[in-house]
């Protein structure tokens, strides 16, 4: 069996003999060797949340009888583009895709489509309706509406806060920010004193907030577009001896953040369901191989507010 570990950028590979009995659609996977190979292209594996997303997609596709390789784009659109070049020339049958750039990644998806390789997006949206077969996406906006309402309840109707944005090229960043602001901006007493990207990265968030605290030492809260940044923000506040005075809000439902919510270190997060999204994308690919063509283009996946009151229900990137 040809294992795809030779492909540049390969981080984790899964090369397994197909198990036709595992197919969810009731039949074996296609016998065509091209169609039996699935690529999982993920934005980064430097964040446990995306590791869960990629590995779940890989594992579900393997259960369904496909050979699977994970490609790590390391948040670099150029690396992502190179992965698509490779997977097109290597004869993959489908791509389970978590993009680095909502608009910049469209060309990669179109290139795969032109080569007859269907693409199934997970978690991160591409802003085109005619490229991917399906997009399974968290309902970030709704999650941050709920988070915004909780923010107001916890912080009050007056206060000063900082917002740490994610990657500015990712629509999730803005859907979260806009959901949050659709609520919080209705309270004129709540002042955002700084808004800066920390690129969804924990270390970057630590650096950014440390710097911002120099000029804004009197904040009441930090809203972070993901949990990695929330954990970095908490570290910065801890170092500045402000952790007990400043409330931190995250998004993702990452295990360390859920634990931090339980311990009272972080006020709240929002649970996304990466395993559900990844499994659904893999199952859509399986159905596509077997002839299904009628997929809703975008399917929102519900998210849930996690606070100290309900945190016991959550863990391991989902509900317990």
């Amino acid at each position: 069996m040809a294992c795809a570990s030779l492909v540049a950028g390969l981080i984790l590979g899964g090369c397994k003999r197909a198990d036709p009995s595992a197919s969810a659609a009731g039949g074996p996977p296609p016998k065509d060797s091209k169609a039996r190979r699935v690529a999982v292209v993920v934005s980064t594996l430097n964040n446990p949340w995306f590791v869960v997303l990629a590995e779940t997609a890989r594992d579900r596709a393997k259960e369904l009888g496909y050979e699977v390789t994970i490609f790590d784009s390391q948040n670099d659109p150029a690396k992502e583009s190179a992965h698509f070049d490779n997977l097109v020339s290597s004869g993959y049958g489908a791509v389970l895709f978590n993009c680095t750039d909502a608009s910049g990644s469209i060309a990669n998806v179109r290139r795969a489509k032109a080569a007859g390789i269907p693409v199934f997006c997970m978690d991160r949206e591409i802003t085109a309706n005619d490229a991917a077969v399906s997009q399974i996406l968290s309902d970030n906006y709704t999650g941050c509406v709920a988070l915004g309402q909780y923010f107001v309840a916890q912080v009050g109707e007056t206060g000063r806060y900082i917002e740490l944005l994610g990657l500015v090229a990712d629509t999730n960043t803005w859907n979260r920010s806009k959901g949050f602001h659709s609520v919080v901006d209705r309270y004129p007493g709540l002042k955002m004193v700084a808004q800066q990207s920390a690129e969804f990265d924990r270390s970057k968030a630590l650096e950014v907030l440390e710097a911002l605290l120099q000029s804004h030492p009197d904040i009441n809260a930090v809203f972070c577009g993901n949990d990695a940044m929330a954990m970095g923000a908490y570290q910065a506040l801890l170092a500045a001896q402000k952790a007990d005075k400043v409330k931190v809000f995250g998004f993702d439902g990452a295990d360390d953040a859920v634990k931090a919510v339980a311990e009272g270190k972080i006020a709240a997060t929002v649970m996304q369901f990466p395993k559900l999204m990844a499994r659904t994308a893999a199952e859509n690919a399986d159905k596509y191989f077997k002839g299904e063509r009628n997929f809703p283009h975008r399917t929102p996946v519900a998210v849930e507010l996690v606070t100290r009151d309900n945190v016991a229900k959550y863990g391991n990137y989902g509900r317990r």
Binding site: E125, N129, N140, T171, N175, R186, P296, R298
Partner: peptide, 23 residues
């Protein structure tokens, strides 16, 4: 004050797939 998607989604009239994107 009204927040969220209760009316957008509650009526069943509007479909995400008829719009350019989630934004």
């Amino acid at each position: 004050p009204l927040f969220g998607n209760t009316v957008r989604d509650g009526t069943g009239l509007l479909n995400v797939n008829e719009f350019p994107g989630l934004a």
